[in-house]
Every structure is written in C-alpha cells, then in structure tokens.
Design a protein around this nucleic acid. Structure first.
Lengths: 339, 339
DNA sequence: CTGTTAGCGCATTCAG
DNA sequence: CTGAATGCGCTAACAG
C-alpha cells in the first residue's frame, strides 16, 4: 500500500495535480466547490506532504537547528534547556517545522555544524544560544548567509537579531530584595567571563551594589558554573573576617553547593548568610532551607526566539525582543542579616 | 553564487552526472582515474549533497526521531537524557544522519507524532524510550511499518528490537553491598508502576531481599519519581518502629529529597539509615553526605541504540542488545547499620 | 567502462 | 478557472 501522492488525490477527485496543489495550499486558482472536493479526497486518502519533495521544490527544509556547545553534564542538571527546547518546539510544531538538535564540543565545532547543515540544506536557519564576548558565530553565519536568531542577548556586533531577558534589572531586583532585608555586604558568584549574560549580570551587580554602598566594597568571584567552584568561591568569601551576609549565585547548582559549603564552615543559612540562586529548579526546592530564586520562563523565551526565526524565514525584517524582568521567588534562604 | 550541484561537477570534470554520482558514492562504474578527477572537481567546488534531493530520490530522510513523553521539568533535572542524546548523536553523525528531537505530552501524542513523521517521511525510524507495561507504541509502530528500536528494555511483545541494561543484576549488586555492610531491613522507593524498567527493578528487589531475608519483610513504596513523593515515602518508611536501616531510591532526585526528609525527622545519614540512588549525577556529589549511586553510561547506551536503528535501516536483521551490569559507586551515604 | 534518460513528489509556470 | 508541462538535485535504470 503506497503512500498517497498528489497525483492520487487528483485522480480520485477527477482534477489535475496542479488544482490539488492549489487547493491544498489554500491559494487561488480553484473554485470553492472543487477545493472542498479535493480536500475531502486528500483527507480520505490520509495524505500528508512528503517533506523531501516539498523541501526540494520549495527550496526550504522546513526545519531549524539548535546546536549547544556545553558539556552534557552541565546541560543535564539545568532544567533551563529542556524548558527552552519545549518552548521552541511548541512554536515550531505550530508552524509545521521540525527541530534538529545537536550537542557540540565547542563554538568551532558549532560553526562547522552550521556550515554543514547549510550546505546540505538540512535546516533553513538556526537558533544560537549562549552568546559570548568576541563571539565568532554571528560573523560566520553572516558569511554563510544563514538566517539566525541569537537567544540570550542582543548581538554586540548587531549582526543577528536577538531575544533576551533584562539581566540588569533582574539583578537590581535581587539586590533590592537583599537591601530591604537589611544586607549591606552582598557578594556575587558569577559564571565564566566569556558569556555575555554573565557579564551583563556582573556589571549590573557592580552598579547596583555600588549605588547603595555604605563603605564596604562588594565582592565578586568568577567561576565556571560548576558545583566545585561554587563551593570554593563560597569558602573564600566566608573566610574573611568581614564576610558578606548575602551571596547571589549565577545558577542553582552553585547556590546549592555554596549552601553546603557554608554549613560545613559553620555558617548558618539564612541566619548568618542569605543565599539567592539565579535560576529556579527542582534542585532549589529539595534543599533545606529552600532557596530564594529568580524565576524566568525559559519556555516562553524559547517560543519567542523560534517565532522570530520563522518570521525571518518568512521574509519579515529582523527585530530584537527584550523580555520583562523575571520574578523573584522568596523562599527560606533569605532573611535579615545577623544583628 | 549558486550552490554547486552534481551537474556542475559533471561539467567541470567533463563527464556525465551519473558518473559523478557513482564516483561520489564510491560505487563501481567509473575508472579510478576519472573518479579522482571527479572527486577533485567536487572538492574544488565545495560540493555537499542536497539532503532534500537525496532523500527524495533515495526514499530515505537521513534522519531519525526521538520523542520523549516526560514533563520537561523531570527531564531537565536528570542528566541521564542529555547524556543519552549525546551518545545517540555521536553515532548518528558518524553515519551522516540527523536527529529530530521532540518533547511530547504523553504516549498518545507520541504515537501521533510518529504517524506524522512517517507520513511526511521526515524520519526513517525512531528510537523509543521509557517502555511501559501494556505499551501501545510497539504495535502502533508495527502497523505503520516504521522501523524502531526500544531503548530501555526488551519488548515484552517481541515486536521491536531492544537495547537495555540488566536492571535485575544491578539491583542485586546494590542489595549485596547493603547486606555486606550488615543491613537486614532494606526498603525500596521505586518509580511509577507503569514503567517497565521500574517494574524490573522492583521485582529484582523483591527477589534479592526475600532471598536473604531473616524474618522482617522488605518494604517497597511506589512513587511518581518526584522529590515530593520521595520525601513522603521516606517519612512513612521511617515512621515505623522497626524502620529500615537502608533505602534504595529509583532516581537521584528522590534520594536527595529522602535524605533531607530523614534529617528533618531526626534520622542521621548514614549513621541511622543508609541511602543509595539509582542514578549518578552532579546532584549526588553536592549533597552532604555525598550519595552512593549506581553509575551507568547513558552515552554508550544511546550510541548503541542509535547504531542498532541505523543497522536496521541498512537492512540488517533486528537483534536485542543487553548491557553489562553498571557500577556501584560507594560514597558517604552508606555505612553499617546502627548497632 | 561511460553517457543518456527517466523518475522521486511537489510547486508552479504557461496555455487552454 | 483548469490541465499539461517543467524543474528542484540526486539516484539508478538503461543503452552505447
């Protein structure tokens, strides 16, 4: 039993294949009556367009790519990506596109993959995540002529359109919460300096704490996002006599590790030190105390980014989208500083 | 600047397009000399096959699908899937295939997606994960005539070839470790009963504990894999006067939640109760005490499953593959029971 | 051993 | 408004 083709529908409806194509794609050229007859025939045969044939003819793959250059280990522990993907897919499915997902070693490999995808016409465009400083990807994509949207920040070079969350105001919101509790000495354990969003947060942290500073310099430590460095950063911050009474971590994993490190060092949370995690996740709710976190909506974020890319493919002009400030979910890990 | 086609290569090398096709695909029909000339021309032009054209002609998409019916929340927190995917991709890339990845609501939606993928010729086959009891997917795939490999267990109905890990012996290994430490009363907090691998583990647990039982019946609790139920199960297990001195959890999240619950109930880990998690992850190393876990290699598992699927597509006969027993990584959460 | 030719399934010209 | 004809880029018959 062969899969039905347009020719089959045409035969069944007693019209030409061109008429079928017109009817199926909802464009003028057939009377409303025959259109209905054709649609009924297609439905009766359970017809679905053959992606390859359509792609070949339309010169459009009907698929977009997402390559991620992060260790699988790191990715797995962060719910962020799965939710991001979930949102991306909701939008893509809606508009009959598929997602090619690929884990890569580094940015170079990522560019190589783009090159291949594009040469093979596997995808019509890509979603680029984790923008970096001196990022080679936008320029590479431009030279390929490959449509793309940058998810995670505005493109500093202005090559790719971007979709991002206002990190600066999010950080300000966290710092405000801590200030209102009475904290004077706040520290920031950030991610690696190569990532743009990390740098935006660090800059915002500097600005926010400097603004309300009462004499004690704020402290910032850079890490690789791992639990190991999160714990080490915490130990070194708490070792000082005048140690901070609140610490903001750039992700959930480090916040959890930091809390454990604090406890081991005999520092109570939140009695002696308050803790805030940038990302919300299951991890933040199974700990004791539960963590105060910044809760974004990665799913909506992904859907928007995917939507922008499809718009771009449909010929709409590239535009940036900035999201509203995420919510701060106050749980048990933040409290007034010790008297 | 148009993308080069086979016709361009043929023109450049002064041969026919068929000769080019033969040369490119490494099959007989051209002399070694012309083959080299053709390859050089293709290389000079930077030619890459157009996936759509190839798929249309070869009647093969050059892509396989992976649909996962789990909440994004659950997926995200488990490193398992990302590593699985990483392994799948390594194998697929090796053999010039792409991966279509999709999150779905439930098994019904998953079947719907298979139907669509197959009708559209989006993929050549699928990797099915999380086999269930009374699973409708194997039969649905057979009725579609869609090639598939079941990753996570042998197919009880024998429809699909499977790739899996020996859960029974893995559980035996865990129980043996606890017995050697001197534990008599061991409990098992398992996942939902609908999942095949969960049921295999539960059965193995029953068998292993019954075998060495000294009078006290083993205890088992069924959960939905969530931290909430993991914690609740722990509380109810520890509430009994004669509570177990060791608990085996079916995943890392529940083990961590269970440990917190135990601590809150005034039960020390590992002094009063030992804890073992089925899956290893970062989560298991940032806790205090660190968790004793069963460590599998999801990446190799994924690569094998993908390899079997591609073999199947290449016409090889379907065969099952059972993996060796995973390792038990002994950390701080297991110790002899209280005297 | 080489070159010519005819599809793969769809979209889209152009006549009728 | 409809139908026949053509091309998308590649593969695989077939004949030379």
């Amino acid at each position: 039993m062969r899969r039905p083709t347009i020719a089959d529908i045409a035969r069944r409806a007693g019209v030409s294949s061109a008429a079928v194509s017109f009817a199926l794609n909802g464009r003028p050229g057939v009377s409303e009556h025959t259109r209905q007859r054709i649609l009924a025939a297609a439905d009766a045969l359970g017809w679905q367009p053959n992606t390859a044939a359509r792609a070949l003819s339309a010169k459009r793959a009907g698929a977009v790519g997402l390559a991620v250059a992060r260790p699988a280990r790191t990715l797995g522990v962060e719910p962020f990506f799965m939710q991001l993907i979930s949102g991306i897919q909701a939008e893509l499915s809606e508009r009959a596109n598929a997602l090619l997902f690929h884990l890569v070693e580094d940015v170079e490999a990522e560019i190589g993959l783009y090159r291949r995808w594009w040469a093979e016409r596997r995808v019509d465009g890509v979603l680029v995540v984790d923008p970096r400083s001196a990022d080679p990807r936008p320029a590479a994509l431009r030279s390929l002529g490959m449509p793309a949207v940058l998810a995670g920040g505005p493109d500093p070079e202005g090559i790719l359109p971007g979709v991002w969350i206002d990190d600066a105001r999010a950080m300000a919101r966290i710092v405000t919460h801590l200030r209102e509790l009475g904290h004077q000495r706040v520290a920031h354990v950030s991610g690696p300096s190569g990532l743009l969003h990390t740098e935006r947060r660090s800059a915002a942290f500097q600005a926010a704490t400097r603004r309300g500073a009462t004499g004690t310099a704020p402290t910032a430590v850079t890490t690789d996002f791992s639990e190991t460095e999160g714990a080490r950063a915490t130990r070194s911050l708490l070792a000082a006599a005048d140690h901070p009474t609140a610490i903001v971590y750039d992700n959930d994993v480090m916040a959890v590790a930091g809390m454990s490190a604090a406890r081991q060092a005999g520092v109570a949370v939140p009695a002696d030190v308050s803790i805030v995690a940038w990302e919300d996740s299951t991890l933040c709710r199974v700990t004791h105390p539960t963590l105060t976190t910044l809760s974004r909506d990665p799913s909506r974020f992904g859907a928007t980014a995917a939507g922008r890319l499809l718009d771009l493919l449909d010929g709409e002009p590239p535009t940036d989208v900035e999201f509203d400030v995420p919510e701060l979910i106050v749980r048990e890990s933040t409290a007034p500083p010790p008297a």
